[in-house]
Design a protein around this nucleic acid. Structure first.
Lengths: 212, 212
DNA sequence: GCGCTTTTTGTCTGTGACTGACATTACATT
DNA sequence: AATGTAATGTCAGTCACAGACAAAAAGCGC
């Protein structure tokens, strides 16, 4: 039932309950976001629904927004896995592009909440698009690490993995943004994003300036 | 004295006072951010220092963060101007790169608060980097409009201006991020950002994957 | 099972961003 | 000066979040 969780083989009762509560909070929050919208859902509501105090909620999630972060992290995980499975001789950004394409099937099956949910959430309140941007920083760092690992360089000294991750997210976010603006169907999302990625060479290139 | 303001030839007394108060709030806020940090500065403090109620502060700035947005908008204006002055036959991203280079001199002279300030602000609390990301959405849209105008396409139908703006900010932000991490001098900022922009073709290219 | 330590949770309290409602003041117009 | 309109102040309220401390619930040796 639980939408997320790495399902460790469990340690003591303590850790089990902790993980359980964590997942309960996450799932409940996402469900409430879906039902009433992000803003309209208070942290007290979430806590109450799960049966804990608001204070406890904040002990599991430093901020309300972190709920969204974790949800995205779940999605990113699929992307990372997909990236690792791409042939090593593919240049990084092409591999990312293809990984994005590969992962979509898995995401679709992953979370019902995400499927119809993220779509509606984004359309309901565009502020989430802005809120979402804030996390790109975190997500980029992780993606950069995976890219660096893949290429075999040190992300601390080589700026290219960071830049590649940034460009990738820039393109994908532009795609998401366009998709929201177009009010398109959920299944169109990947296509729109891939289009942006495929457009990168042209946008970067020199043959784009003199025309009407 | 005033750091910002388009200095209209003034209409009635009303509008003059309004603009005056707006600038006073902006300047005071930035000064306080610089002195005590962003978090430590309360909206009440800002309002009190200017001599108005907190409620009035929020009537001028929908959120505390909007102070930062407006400050950035001021900077962006220089970038837009610089971009418009670049030769028309330069491809968009190269023109952006050069515009960034061009604008720096003007920015340096523009605001004392920005000069030593933004640097310290970013280093003091890295959360601002994340906060800052949120605004890229807004800034990107505006930049995309300028790019579209320059190239002579409709930004509503052609996705390339949006993508170009997104990629540009992605690179610049990666540069800023690296600069903050390196704890470098303020004057190094433009160089670091330009480096990222110059690195774009390589990162996009195919000749980057097989090496140790 | 029974104390004892450690972790986790609840409760209380407080701060600070932000908002709606409404009275009040200040400019504008005639 | 009279009156309408826009700006401001005041007040009360919501909500995200944080510190402090006590209560409850593991874990652990006996």
């Amino acid at each position: 039932m639980s939408a997320t969780s790495t399902e460790a083989p469990v340690g003591g009762l303590r850790e089990r309950k902790k993980a359980q509560l964590h997942d309960a909070l996450l799932d409940t929050a996402l469900r409430l976001f879906h039902e009433h919208g992000y803003q309209a859902t208070t942290t007290e509501e979430i806590a109450a629904r799960v049966g804990v105090s608001q204070r406890t909620f904040f002990r599991y999630f430093p901020a309300k927004e972190d709920i969204l972060l974790e949800a995205l992290e779940g999605v990113d995980q699929y992307l990372f896995d997909a990236l690792r499975e791409r042939p090593a001789d593919e240049p990084p950004l092409l591999a990312l592009r293809n990984a994005l394409s590969d992962q979509w099937d898995r995401v679709e099956r992953a979370s019902m909440i995400l499927r119809g949910g993220a779509a509606k959430l984004m359309k309901q309140n565009p502020e989430l698009m802005a809120t979402h941007m804030r996390y790109c920083h975190v997500r980029q760092k992780k993606l950069a690490a995976v890219v660096a690992e893949r290429v075999g360089v040190d992300p601390a000294t080589d700026p290219r993995p960071d830049l590649a991750a940034a460009v990738f997210f820039a393109a994908v976010n532009t795609g998401v943004s366009a998709w929201v603006a177009a009010d398109a169907d959920f299944d169109d999302l990947p296509r729109v994003c891939l289009e942006q990625l495929d457009l990168l060479p042209e946008v970067l290139g020199d043959d784009w300036c003199a025309q009407g």
